[in-house]
Structure formats: structure tokens, C-alpha cells
């Protein structure tokens, strides 16, 4: 368990809305599913270059695995580690599906519906940021298994009230979350609720904080063709 020191900032993301927060290198970011069964579409942007952002495909490729795992970093699209997953009380998330957008609700004939994509642009306006493209999300708490026909599905999250993931932030980021407004399929168990961001100062006597930055060594790939 990581010892959390002073709470720097708490940001409540109301159901169906999006919010962002600046998190400094070394700080910890806790993303909390307040009432349970709520997906948080999660993004992280470089505060100085919004074309640099958290990337599921680079995270998969650099870790050589489908899903994130405690103790392993998440990478941006420049293949730099920007977050380290410290704790995860759920273990079921999605890194394969795009965020919902107006077109997605159009498939359900609900064109005026709020969407994660619009939520992220709204959240970034507060930082005067307009990314050149909209990245793929890390869908925290989303339960989207691939069935035995190889098809991507969506079923209700298994998260309970207060479940969370805790990231150690390895580079300054603007972290953005959208409390996913999807209520026309089981993604949020048909009941969108709030998400909470908490930013903590890292403890100075936290041993896990040391030795966790990416080592400057070469030749990390193993026989599988990936880091193992």
C-alpha cells in the first residue's frame, strides 16, 4: 500500500460530465468510483503539448500485454512512461474501445445525448487546451470482455462504491476524466453516477517512490518480442 500524505486537491466529476486537473510529477492521482458501477473514460495530456497523450496502444506494446497491471507503467504516444499504476481495487478495465461520442448515440437515435468526447473537450477548455486529435481513452472500471467469438462486448462494471485506482504520476500531466454518460447499454448499469479525482502529495519516506522511475537501461525486450 502506498502511504498517502497531504490531499492537494479533490475534483468531483458529476455524473455525465467531464473535468480535468493538473497533476505534478511525483504526485499521486486516485480515481474513485464513488457509488460503484460507473465507468471513467480517462485521459492524460502533456500540459505543454496536447499532441502528447496517454496511449493505450503504446501501453500494450511497451508492456507486452493487453491490460494494465499494478507495478507497471502506462505510456504516452511518444512511448514515455507517464503514469505508474500503484493500486487497483477492481482489476477490470478496458483499453480497447473508443470513447462515446455524438455519432455513437446516433446509433441509438439519441443525437443530443451527452458524450465522453464532448466532456473531454469541455474539460480541456478550462485549461485553454484544444488537442489536435481526440485520443483513445483508458476506460477505468469498464467491463468489456472479448467473447469466445472474438467480439468486443460491454456488460455492467464489477466495481463497488469507493473502488479506485491509484496512479503515481511520472511526468506533469493534465488528467481528464469523464463520468461516462452511457445509459442506453449496460456500460454503467443504466445509471450514470459521479467520479472523484483526488491528488495527493507523495510521502517523503515512501520507499516505493524510489527506484520506480524508468531505468535508463537498454535492451528491455525479451524472447516474446516485448518487455516481460
Amino acid at each position: 500500500m502506498v502511504k498517502l500524505e497531504q490531499l492537494v486537491k479533490g475534483v468531483l466529476i458529476p455524473a455525465t460530465f467531464g473535468k480535468g486537473v493538473l497533476v505534478r510529477q511525483g504526485q499521486l492521482l486516485k480515481v474513485i468510483d464513488v457509488e460503484g458501477k460507473q465507468v471513467c473514460d480517462f485521459f492524460a495530456f502533456s500540459p505543454t503539448d496536447p499532441a502528447e497523450f496517454l496511449s493505450p496502444s503504446h501501453t500494450r506494446g511497451s508492456n507486452g500485454q493487453l491490460d494494465m497491471e499494478p507495478g507497471k507503467p502506462l505510456f504516452n504516444n511518444a512511448r514515455q512512461p507517464i503514469l505508474l499504476l500503484e493500486e487497483d481495487t477492481v482489476g477490470v478495465h478496458d483499453m480497447r474501445a473508443a470513447a462515446c461520442d455524438p455519432m455513437r448515440y446516433g446509433m441509438y437515435d439519441a443525437w443530443q445525448h451527452r458524450s465522453c468526447k464532448m466532456n473531454v473537450f469541455e474539460a480541456l477548455q478550462e485549461f485553454n487546451m484544444w488537442p489536435p486529435v481526440f485520443p483513445d481513452p483508458v476506460n477505468l472500471f469498464q467491463n468489456s470482455p472479448i467473447d469466445n467469438q472474438g467480439k468486443l462486448t460491454v456488460i455492467p462494471p464489477i466495481s463497488k462504491a469507493g473502488d479506485y485506482v491509484l496512479f503515481r504520476v511520472m511526468q506533469d500531466i493534465i488528467a481528464v476524466g469523464s463520468a461516462c454518460p452511457m445509459d442506453v447499454n449496460p456500460c454503467n448499469d443504466f445509471n450514470p453516477t459521479d467520479i472523484m479525482f483526488e491528488v495527493y502529495q507523495a510521502s517523503l519516506d515512501d520507499e516505493s517512490a524510489t527506484g520506480r522511475t524508468q531505468p535508463a537501461v537498454k535492451g528491455l525486450a525479451g524472447p516474446s518480442g516485448f518487455r516481460e
Binding site: P56, S57, R96, A97, A98, R104, M107, D136, I146, Q149, G150, K151, L152, T153, V154, N185
Partner: peptide, 19 residues
């Protein structure tokens, strides 16, 4: 071209695989 958008479409609309 976007894999993440195609996967959702194929999985939920056409019952097709993720590739």
C-alpha cells in the same frame, strides 16, 4: 482509420470479431 472505433462498431452492431 481507427481500430478503437471500428472494434466497438463491429462488436456491437455486426457481431463481428475485434480485428
Amino acid at each position: 482509420l481507427s481500430g478503437s472505433h471500428t472494434r466497438v462498431f463491429l462488436g456491437q452492431t455486426l457481431e463481428a470479431p475485434t480485428t
